[in-house]
Design a protein around this nucleic acid. Structure first.
Lengths: 327, 327
DNA sequence: CTGTTAGCGCATTCAG
DNA sequence: CTGAATGCGCTAACAG
């Protein structure tokens, strides 16, 4: 069913039908209604792709997330989708994984589909290779990075200041009498390194000796593992900050199993303030890095960009600590 | 940069360029290479939408999920996406929520975008209204429902036999000496009602009195709430089966708080075998309803359908119980 | 081996 | 108020 089929049956031309569909003025009431009826009768819907071809717009937004298992990123993706959907855009959400090849491939898909905007969710995208791909394949559309930044004219970075947040976390632990505070990264991503900086800032501030550790990954099991390592290497550790909630949950379990009371002997803090915090027992204290706010900001910035309005290149959000049982 | 721009610079016609792009035979080596170089030089990528217009294919697959918060559905969606992606399709994943209006709206979007196939994830889509929408808007493309079924010629249902699975769960609990087994639904969805049937089957089999309850929703908090209700109404309850993991986790917490030992005094079982099972303490026993298998099947069936091959209308998968600490 | 022509479904001139 | 003609970027059928 095309616009021509409708036109033929309505006894008018395709352009008239087009006008009716798009609510353009200058159509006789009578004609308009006749066409409307047929549209209804055949359940006609214009082919967006064909329309896009002439209007030079795909109505597509690409959202790339590094890892599906990070709930946090999914949440962000779908908040953005919801906002864009309201404005008639469709979102293509794709998990790129960590390899540059798939990252390139998926960025290319966005180019092929003529996406009108792109969102990269996760600090993993703060790499030179991704920067090169964006520059090469998406030089003309607005790109927003949630929790990251790339120095390119069409890219806006939206970043929760986790460095400052982790600094505040050290303050909190210090105020509770903790002095042997460790920090466990789940990998050397840019975002994690900035958390680490915050940790080091805090420790320096109080003249404490840093205790840095790095887990093999971001699963619960790997969190347990690194915790055992920490506690066996430095049994007097009285607080551990983890770069992500899930490893912190593993930390809770390992610590309890090793005979530590949480939080009396050992305080535990995660990052993301995810649903896991309330499922774990004791409930996990976590740094809220404002997914919702940053995602909504991302959507807003993207829209401004698509409308060719000038946008900020870098936006910083503040975090806050949500205290539960583990501190 | 269009195919014509490339053609002009290469000193040939657009069709030649098209042939090179699509690796068609019958091009002189020399010409092919010259074109290839230009393609490379300008980073040219064909406009998929324009190509789709002539080839009558959008390369788009729609995936509708009822609720984002159900991890289970997301997982399914992304497994399907991964499979379809391998074959060059792009997926539009959209959360419809529960209102018929948004369901209709999103199904319409799939029609507008000329999706070549659709997947509905969740038993919430087993309604007469959704059936009517599918019949009206998507009558000609293959549609697969994960965890559901609609009697329409182009629809395939893929269903984990949770009824049988919950029956087996009752068997397990009975074998552990439990006699006062309760069942807590998180809402009267078709899928939940079939779980309930399985529960009733099991109770009948052993001549036990059923104890049916229904929570307000599927959050952890609502799981806690219904558990308190159950335990205060029938304190001798010695096992509770929940229709979903998250409410079961709430159940664990409420039970422990009420002074029940889990599993000695009270066994707890969830459904979905999600990540929550291992985060909770004690670890939650859960019915594995095979997301992965059913999602992969969904993708396979969809592809067969797109290729116009005959497909089964209904596929049943078997579940199994993953025992952890709560039984 | 390659170019010309036509058309996918639509919106947009420009005439009338 | 309406229609004919044109073109968006691409592929395919048909000539040559």
């Amino acid at each position: 069913m095309t616009i021509y089929d409708i036109a033929k049956e309505a006894g008018c031309s395709a352009s008239t039908v087009s006008r009716v569909i798009n609510n353009k003025p200058g159509i006789r009431r009578e004609t308009r209604e006749r066409v409307r009826e047929l549209l209804e009768k055949y359940n006609y819907t214009p082919d967006i792709a064909a329309r896009g071809l002439v209007k030079q717009s795909s109505g597509l937004i690409g959202i790339l997330i590094e890892d599906l298992r990070v709930l946090h990123h999914l949440e962000s993706a779908f908040i953005i989708e919801r906002e864009m959907m309201k404005l008639g855009y469709c979102c293509i959400i794709m998990p790129t994984g960590f390899s540059p090849e798939t990252q390139e491939e998926y960025i290319r898909v966005l180019e092929q589909r003529r996406a009108e905007g792109a969102v990269l969710v996760g600090s993993m995208f703060m790499t030179e290779t991704v920067k090169a791909y964006v520059e090469k394949y998406l030089p003309k559309i607005p790109v927003v990075i949630v929790n990251g930044y790339l120095d390119l004219p069409n890219v806006t970075g939206i970043i929760a200041d986790e460095r400052e947040g982790i600094g505040k976390t050290v303050d909190l632990l210090y105020s509770k009498g903790k002095r042997n505070i460790a920090f466990a990264l789940d990998g050397p991503t840019v975002s994690n390194l900035s958390k680490q900086e915050g940790y080091l800032d805090g420790m320096r501030k109080y003249g404490l000796e840093p205790r840095l550790f790095e887990s093999k990954g971001k699963t619960q099991k790997e969190g347990e593992q690194i915790t055992r390592e920490i506690l066996s290497a430095m049994p007097d550790t009285d607080a551990i900050i983890y770069s992500v909630d899930l490893t912190a949950v593993g930390g809770i379990h390992a610590a309890v199993q090793e005979g530590y009371r949480v939080p009396e002997d050992l305080s535990i803090v995660g990052v993301d303030n995810s649903i896991y915090c309330d499922i774990a027992r004791p409930r996990l204290t976590s740094l809220n890095n404002k997914v919702e706010e940053s995602s909504e900001t991302a959507a807003a910035v993207l829209i401004e960009g698509i409308r060719k309005k000038p946008v900020h290149r870098k936006i910083i959000l503040f975090t806050d600590i949500v205290e539960r049982d583990t501190t």
